[in-house]
Design a protein around this nucleic acid. Sequence first.
DNA 1: TGCAAATGGTTTCATATGTAACTATAACGC
DNA 2: GCGTTATAGTTACATATGAAACCATTTGCA
Lengths: 152, 152
Amino acid sequence: MAEEHHPDHAPLELENFLPYRLSILSNAVSQAIADDYQRRFDLSMTEWRVMAVLARFDGLSAREVAERTLMDKVAVSRALSKLVETGWVTRAIHDGDKRRSVLGLSEAGWAIHEVVAPMAREHERNLMSKLDEEERTWLLRILDKLQAIEPK
Amino acid sequence: MAEEHHPDHAPLELENFLPYRLSILSNAVSQAIADDYQRRFDLSMTEWRVMAVLARFDGLSAREVAERTLMDKVAVSRALSKLVETGWVTRAIHDGDKRRSVLGLSEAGWAIHEVVAPMAREHERNLMSKLDEEERTWLLRILDKLQAIEPK
DNA sequence: TGCAAATGGTTTCATATGTAACTATAACGC
DNA sequence: GCGTTATAGTTACATATGAAACCATTTGCA
């Protein structure tokens, strides 16, 4: 019954259309951060996400990285081949299963992480600072609810 | 002073990192809708956005479409050339300025719009229905605040 | 065992996207 | 008027992305 003033056949107002708004906001935020580490380390967003996951979970396989980042395995494979080549990620073969790789950050990889993680957090803090405490709380709660559904 | 339990150098928890969460949510939502009209009309997201804007504002130029959709002019140009070819958008030349095009939906374009706009709204409603009234209000308010800043 | 099916990962190919260069026209300054 | 600069839009190129085919290995099971 909501939205009587928006008959279904009327032209869509993009700027009030929630999915569109989310998309614009999300792209602006992520891109701002990515531009930052891209410029400084020539690191793509997918590559950074792989590194972030490996910083938390050492020894994952590529498939597990894909699961945790919600990226597809091809993207992960490509990111890894670049990260291994630049020497930020180490890759060994699982003993007991020669298909599986065993991944981790190298020393150099950790050094990058030490710079990028705070930078990312700073962007996040900056974004959150536009909201007051009450809004922040609601936002997190709302995200929880929406995300509980969507990732079917 | 927030987030003391997240020292800056600690590994980033992607699943609690706001930009990442926004990105995942936004992609899931937009993709679900796009899959829908893509399958039925072989319409890409950029193409649909162009059509949605032309449904509201008849006679825009390509540049104006780009402004309103926040897409870059190349993307718009490509979308338009396909839409004009399929006959869903009409393109004339502005009299008085031969560089400028004058765009609008064709009959067939309107027919597509009549199907896709309600479908999009239905997805949006469905998403919003996961929230209660209070949460919906906060969400819109929060988006307003965040968007007032980001699109620098 | 041994062979079909499943799994981890990479490669290939087709498509999408962004940046820069380009074309045509219009606006501006003298 | 006329050369310079700006603007609308397209094209070209380089890179990113996704789907499907592929290879190697492992698992399931007769």
